[in-house]
Structure formats: structure tokens, C-alpha cells
């Protein structure tokens, strides 16, 4: 079965879809860059965004690659490659693949896999997570316009309230707060893991990541080295992940 799943035809099907999404990203990127130039945006800022996002994405991508390897034992390499290159999410794929395998009456292992089970699993994996795209097709235009309307209304109110002092609009405050909420949920869960399973490594790694970030920010502020901003997250992650290797031995 694995030979069939790793055949050139399967690589071709999955590779073509990934290539389409890659082209889509390139088109959006070029359009955005050109629009930025036309709007008079600082090209240095846009280039910094690209550099920072690229360095930021490398390590999580290696983590995602491990997801591909983990699933390749049961689903072959092309299917997890497709799922995790586009649309999928690391925490989602294995969970859904296992649940889908269960519904087809097998467990997620190559020895039990049948062609019917594989294609049923892939269909279920695709349908269960496609709602973000479906909502995008029908609602993003209206939703983002509504948000834009609120943002400009808020900006006008803020400017009036602040007497034109340039106070940051609540839209930005809310975005930062939402992100703080997101991070807090994960940090809280690392404490919970200690009690639930004795796993203190996640919290320790997060603490090292935070400490490394503190050092990067200190250097950035004391030495006025703006370029550090673009690499501070990736740098902190490398330090924290390296620390995990040593901490795990304790």
C-alpha cells in the first residue's frame, strides 16, 4: 500500500495543488508590494516585513515537516506533504486522520490501510477544515468592509476625544489584547500540563524563550539596533529549542 501511496502519480497530484497555492502566494505578494510602492509606503519597511516573516517561519516550518514525517508512515509522503504545506494545521492533521481512520474501521497504520480508507480519510480531512475558505468566499468582503468602517469611525472618535494628540485607536489596542489572550491561553496550559502529566518542559522552554526575547529587546533598546527586531523571535526560538534538548536530560 505504501508503494502505491508514494507513487509518482500521487506526488504529481499533490505537487500540482501545492504549486497552485505557491503561485497564489506569489501573486498576492507581488500585488501587495506594488500597491505598497504605489501608495508611497517605505520599501525598507516592506523588505523588513519579508525578511522578518521569512526568518520567523523557518523553525515552525521544520516543526511542520516533522508532522509530515510522522504521518508518512501510515499515509505515505505525498498526502501529508499536501495537507501540511497548504490548508492543514499541525495540531489538526494527526487528530483528524486518526478519527477518520477509526470511522473507516481501521487504525492509522500502514499495515491496515486500504485504498478506500486512504481516500475517505483524505476527503474527511479536507472537508472538516475547509470552512475558513468557504466563509472567505462568502463573507470576507462584507466582514472586512464592516471592520474598516468601524476602524475609521473609531479613529475619528479617538482623534476627537484625544484632541488630535494621536492616541492609538482602540482597534490596535483590541488586536494586541486579543493576541495577549491567545498567548495567555497557551501559557496557562503549560502550567496545567505540569499538574496533569508532570510535563514541565513546555513551561521551561517557554520561560527560556521569554528570557531570550528579553535579552534581544535589551540589546535592541540599549544599542539601538533596529535590525534585531526581524530576527528576535526566530533567535529566541532557536535558543529555547536548544535549551529543550538539555532540559529534557534533567
Amino acid at each position: 500500500m505504501l508503494t502505491q501511496l508514494n507513487s509518482s502519480a500521487m506526488y504529481l497530484i499533490c505537487g500540482s495543488i501545492i504549486a497552485f497555492v505557491a503561485v497564489m502566494c506569489v501573486v498576492f505578494m507581488i500585488r501587495a508590494y506594488r500597491a505598497g510602492v504605489a501608495l508611497g509606503m517605505d520599501t525598507t519597511k516592506m523588505k523588513r516585513t519579508i525578511t522578518a516573516s521569512a526568518t520567523f517561519a523557518v523553525l515552525p516550518s521544520v516543526g511542520i515537516l516533522l508532522g509530515v514525517i510522522a504521518l508518512s508512515g501510515s499515509l505515505g509522503t505525498p498526502i501529508p506533504w499536501l495537507r501540511l504545506s497548504v490548508i492543514g494545521a499541525l495540531h489538526y492533521e494527526t487528530q483528524v486522520a486518526e478519527a477518520a481512520a477509526e470511522q473507516t474501521g481501521i487504525t492509522l497504520s500502514a499495515s491496515q490501510m486500504t485504498p478506500t480508507a486512504v481516500v475517505t480519510i483524505v476527503l474527511l480531512m479536507s472537508v472538516c477544515i475547509m470552512w475558513g475558505m468557504v466563509l472567505s468566499v462568502f463573507f470576507t468582503k462584507k466582514y472586512s468592509r464592516k471592520l474598516k468602517g468601524k476602524a475609521s469611525q473609531g479613529e475619528a472618535e479617538d482623534t476627537a476625544e484625544a484632541g488630535g494628540k494621536g492616541i492609538v485607536g482602540f482597534g490596535d489596542v483590541a488586536m494586541t489584547a486579543m493576541f495577549i489572550g491567545l498567548v495567555s491561553a497557551y501559557i496557562g496550559s503549560y502550567f496545567g500540563q505540569i499538574k496533569a502529566s508532570g510535563n514541565w518542559l513546555s513551561l521551561a522552554v517557554a520561560a527560556v524563550g521569554a528570557l531570550a526575547m528579553a535579552v534581544f529587546i535589551l540589546i535592541r533598546e540599549k544599542k539601538d539596533q533596529e535590525w534585531i527586531d526581524g530576527f528576535s523571535i526566530a533567535g529566541s526560538m532557536i535558543i529555547a529549542m536548544a535549551a529543550a534538548v538539555f532540559l529534557a536530560k534533567l
Partner: peptide, 18 residues
């Protein structure tokens, strides 16, 4: 352990920043 902890490493750094 390093690859198992990509997300904690990311959120630890982001937590300090935010």
C-alpha cells in the same frame, strides 16, 4: 524535545514581547 517544543518556544518569546 526541541521539535516537540516549537510552539512553547514561540509563545514564550511572544509572551515576553507582548
Amino acid at each position: 524535545p526541541a521539535f516537540d517544543n516549537v510552539v512553547p518556544a514561540l509563545f514564550g518569546a511572544m509572551a515576553f514581547k507582548y
